[in-house]
Design a binder for these strands. Structure first.
Lengths: 248, 248
DNA sequence: TCAGGTATGCTGGTCGGACCAGCAATCCAG
DNA sequence: CTGGATTGCTGGTCCGACCAGCATACCTGA
């Protein structure tokens, strides 16, 4: 006979569980409204303080949003990567991860995304990538360049047809930029970097177009390494090297 | 002249910001205690309800922990990937991904984890993997088998030294099991499946030990495909095939 | 009849006070 | 000196109250 350690479950947790389950299971859809706090406290049979603490937790997790004075009640939000973003940021601040780890994950993710996209992309998605590349070429040196760069990588991620790849890619890209933004300004040869990056992207796109996933994967990872390696401390670089040059 | 949209900042948010910043900046260390709620409401000049809502948010983010009756006050927690785990979990559920997508993501992730582990693993981690493999061999057919299987994959993920890989691996494994658990029972030839899985794991471990990351990556993905492909509907299989056999 | 402004009833945000069960240090009796 | 009861304080929950803000409905004036 085995017993489990008993944990007292707070009232507000039960409320969180029920609402969370209703949202995640799709029983209530994004955009829909919950009852007002005063209604919920009747439905759950708890006080308003308890309801409010539960709602706070759900709001912090980006599952709900409340506005004062809105007679329609708390709004159910669409799932967003904001919470994921925050968790990753916290871990980087706590030194559990550095640029090395985040970049490692990005290389892993985008490399595999190229591999998949080379086989799975539709021609419309290929056009999107080409359009983004054109935008990069046109706006070389401006802030529009990074926007187009993001659009390119996003199109690749979407071509995999996998929402998690899209979302994780998005988050990991943002965090990489946050981690290097202070060192990024005084790059006197940014223009050369961008030109080099553009050339890399062009090669990768060609490989994706040709359906050569392995090549696209290798090129894409190499491009990331070349672009960001200077910002990564030595002990972080060791984590990146197995991802480049390798057959995979 | 540009203006930004003005957002009314709630009192509890200001409290969250201050405590969060104190923790993340290291001004208060893990294990230390905050003042009691009744003290904090004086320090911040707000009511206890407001303090409590702030603490709830921080507790949900795994930054604090409170226990009723503890005279030492809320405890500051060490940064952990628990919050990351929750975010990833929510996203996978909310985007209602099918088995195809989840398995695609898992193959991508674990494949790359093998590739990295082959270069980065310490000999202690190699021993862990071998031990898990032994446990699988010993408990073939029992529920202990899956536990050892999990331990094996977890050891591989940890060998990458990347918390994101570890956490995403955990989540993706959990979700795969949830998605197939109803179909899993009536597998009459589970024993054969487990034996085959064991053989695959043995090969993969050998490749990791030899430092042949590309081989380990390929074998690992193939093993996942062989083990789970029967549960995946036809349209999902298309998303998996680019990941197997490929040079990468 | 219709337009525009106002009144009303709700919302969430905050406050204060109250009670309970539980933990730990302290104090007291053995 | 030891062991158990006492005593503060803790967090968890409840209640009642007030405020500013949003939408609707109403109502007044043209």
């Amino acid at each position: 006979m085995e017993f489990e350690p008993v944990t007292p479950v707070r009232a507000y947790e039960r409320v969180v569980e029920q609402i969370e389950e209703a949202v995640l299971s799709g029983r209530v859809l994004p955009g829909e409204r919950l009852s007002s706090e005063r209604d919920l406290m009747v439905q759950f049979g708890v006080s308003r303080s308890t309801v409010r603490e539960a709602l706070r937790v759900l709001q912090a997790a980006q599952i709900l949003r409340s506005r004062p004075g809105d007679p329609r009640g708390p709004e159910v939000l669409a799932a967003s990567p904001a919470a994921l973003h925050k968790s990753v940021r916290h871990l980087t601040r706590a030194r559990h991860m550095g640029l090395g780890e985040v970049l490692q994950f990005r290389m892993l993710l985008e490399g595999s995304a190229y591999l998949l996209a080379a086989s799975l992309r539709t021609s419309a998605q290929l056009d999107e990538m080409a359009a983004a590349l054109e935008a990069m070429r046109a706006d070389l040196g401006t802030s529009e360049f990074s926007r187009a760069d993001v659009a390119f990588h996003d199109a690749v991620a979407r071509a995999t047809g996998n929402p998690m790849i899209v979302v994780c890619g998005e988050v990991v890209r943002e965090v990489v930029l946050e981690l290097i933004e202070d060192k990024l300004v005084h790059a006197d040869d940014r223009h050369a970097l961008m030109r080099s990056s553009l050339a890399h992207h062009t090669e990768v796109l060609a490989a994706v177009r040709d359906g050569d996933g392995a090549l696209a994967c290798r090129l894409g990872r190499q491009a990331l390494y070349d672009y960001y390696a200077d910002y990564v401390p030595e002990e972080g670089l060791a984590k990146l090297r197995p991802l480049i040059g390798a057959e995979t």
